[in-house]
Amino acid sequence: MKTILCFIAGASLLLTTGCWGILEIQTVHYVTAVGADYKNGEFVLYAQMLEFADAAKLEGQPKTKKPTVYVGNAAGKSLWDAANKLQTTAQQLLFWEQVSTIVVTENVLKADKLLEFLEFTNRDKEIRYNSWIFSTKENIEDIFKAQTFFKFSSLYTLLHEPKDQYRQSSSISPVRLYQFIRSLKDTARSSYLPSLTLKTDNWREDGNGMKLLEVDGANLFQTKRWNGWISRTDLTGWQWVNPKTQSYPVALLSDDDISAVMVFEKPRIHIRPQEKWDKAYFDITITLDASLVELREEMTENELMERYTKLLEGQILHAFQEGIRIHTDVLNLGDSLYRSNSRAWRRIADNHAFVLHNDAIRHLKVDIHFKDTGEYKFVPQKREDEDR
């Protein structure tokens, strides 16, 4: 009996067909980043592919070759047309579910084609909503081929993993696709895309300048309309009104030399909106934790606090005025009025959901809480009073 059962089991195994429809991993090309440009009345779609073997971090085994990056592009009257052209020369099946980053050029924004591109990504069910999204003035192929350190894969660059650097220096926070789409639909808030550029003057490899990615600013939107680009320098101060800010160093300058450097963390923001004479006004209080990391000029603790308070308040007001210049509520002050008094907001807002004016910030106070002085010694307060 056992012999008969073994014979039947063996025969059934021979008759099993197996999973013939499953594709082997080496027969699929995995797209890791998608980019869009707009030139001469046509979309240009870019795709970045990486060798996933290059992404492996093998302990104790140094990498002997630079990672391979493949970049394809195709132009078409529509994005689907361009995507089909890419597929026809891909040699194997293109798999889009590994896309972790999306990049659009300013040409797409200026031509008012962003919503069309977002509809394309929405209809393609393989592209996930948690992908990062950036803008750029550069050629997308150059962005996709940016260099890395230690022969690591491009997966270890700002393009694919921007969170780590933001934790250390919280300037312009990275944005997920779903976050950007949600903010575009928000009635009273502005939205933005971080802007990527290539820098060649900071790091060198074997004496040659390295092309490395950097966030140099942001493209701003109000009610789904692109309003313009603002540099990272002019947006300094934005991070103090952003609760996502984790850590950001600020140098205090005096006669073009550094007097001190402090690291500020975790802003607590309180905005009190008020309507008066059909205008919106805002009282802003921001509390920051701070650590002193460098002190190169003798001064009292009070003097240091006063100078930094004045500096940070000036940065916030400058970012606010830069937003006014392009008709965008960069600090999202209008959102606080909308949430507290939507009727007043609707009465004041223009056709682009803009409620601000040059004097909209009525009161601004930055309160700095010292966490750590780094063992630096301040000038005693009594001596300062005697000098006066």
Rank of each mutant, 00 (worst) to 15 (best):
A111F: 06
A47S: 10
L118N: 01
T88L: 15
I133E: 15
Y70K: 03
I127E: 02
E59I: 13
V99W: 10
G41Q: 04
F134P: 03
A82H: 10
A111S: 13
L79V: 11
F120Q: 01
V108D: 02
N122H: 15
E97V: 14
E119Q: 09
T157A: 08
Y38G: 05
E138A: 04
F144A: 12
A53Q: 15
V31N: 05
F134D: 08
T148W: 07
L86Q: 02
W80T: 01
L58A: 02
F117M: 07
Y129V: 08
N122Q: 15
I25Y: 11
A82L: 07
H29I: 04
V69I: 11
T32W: 05
S153G: 01
I127Q: 04
F120K: 05
V69H: 00
V103Q: 12
Y70F: 10
E97W: 12
S78N: 03
A33Q: 02
T148L: 09
A74Q: 11
A75Y: 10
A82T: 09
M49S: 14
H29W: 07
L93S: 02
Y46N: 03
T64I: 11
S78D: 07
H160P: 04
A90Y: 05
S153Y: 04
L86N: 08
Q26E: 15
Q61V: 02
Q87E: 09
A56D: 03
N73T: 07
D112Q: 13
I143D: 05
T136Q: 10
D37G: 08
V71R: 06
K65A: 07
S135K: 08
G76L: 03
E119H: 12
E24S: 12
A55M: 14
K66Q: 03
E126T: 09
A47E: 10
I127N: 04
N122W: 14
K63C: 01
V108M: 05
V108Y: 00
L86W: 11
L79S: 00
D54T: 04
I127M: 11
N107P: 01
H29E: 07
E126N: 06
Q92K: 15
T88A: 11
L93K: 13
V99E: 02
A74C: 05
N84A: 14
H29R: 08
V69D: 00
A36V: 15
S100P: 01
F134L: 06
T88Y: 14
K110Q: 12
M49P: 09
N122D: 15
V31S: 07
R128G: 03
Q91K: 11
N40R: 11
L50V: 13
T148I: 11
N107D: 10
H160G: 05
G72A: 15
Q147P: 03
